Computed example of a mutant assay.
Amino acid sequence: MLISARAASRIFEEETGLVRQQSRRVLLSGLAGQGTRAGGSLLYDEALVRSLARWPEADHAEVLAQCPGGPLVVRLGRGDERAAPVETLAGAGQIIRSQVRARIEEHGSVPLVATVCGYPVRLAELTGLAVLPGASASGSHWAQQRVAVEFREPSEESSRWTRQVTERRLVTGPGPAWLLLGSQPYAGTRRTA
């Protein structure tokens, strides 16, 4: 049965606690299928919405146990819901770039999980990153920097970490668009208020 985006948002709120604006972003990502336009409404398959809303939270300890050095979580912002191929990203400061480069040198790659409100929309293995030419390298303009990301599809060897986040929500607390799970104090498991 098809339901309105408003009804789908209520399901997400009941099952996950996501507010309407967040659930709309998840719906726009296409994880619950493409919406069907009917007049001024967007309709979604109720079974797909309910299935998506029931995804359990990934256990951060299990994810970290399977990802040497921790995965890089990229929280896609408003308007980026459909931008699952994360080839360039803004806002990666010098500290996160240095941490990621060090982990790539140590492990050969870093698991990358692009999420929309905790829902993974892209899994990859990050193999390199660099500030694009013309991007400001001064500390006062770090938020405007564009970073080129080199990645490959997850390999057979990476299936142990992909299983930890496939059809699970990788819920993180507030923080920057880029975060290396396990390295920042605010990147731990979400606490219930």
Rank of each mutant, 00 (worst) to 15 (best):
L170I: 13
C67G: 09
R97W: 00
C117H: 07
L52W: 08
V110T: 11
T88M: 09
Q99A: 08
Q164F: 09
G91T: 11
S4R: 10
A193L: 06
T172N: 07
W55Y: 13
P176M: 12
T162R: 06
A124N: 04
G79W: 05
G69L: 04
G139A: 14
S41R: 07
A124M: 01
G69R: 05
Q22N: 13
L129Q: 09
P111E: 08
L89V: 14
A84K: 04
H141W: 12
S41C: 06
A47W: 06
T115N: 07
L132T: 11
R103W: 01
S51L: 08
A58W: 04
G93N: 15
D59Q: 10
V63I: 08
R75S: 12
R163F: 07
L18T: 03
S136V: 15
R25M: 15
S138P: 06
H141I: 09
L180H: 02
L52V: 09
S4T: 15
R163N: 14
V116L: 08
V131S: 00
G128M: 05
E13D: 03
G69N: 05
G139Y: 10
E87H: 01
R75H: 07
Q22H: 13
G40R: 14
L179F: 10
A8S: 15
P68Y: 00
V147P: 03
A61F: 02
E153D: 14
R75G: 05
C67K: 02
Q99F: 12
G93W: 05
A187H: 14
V100R: 03
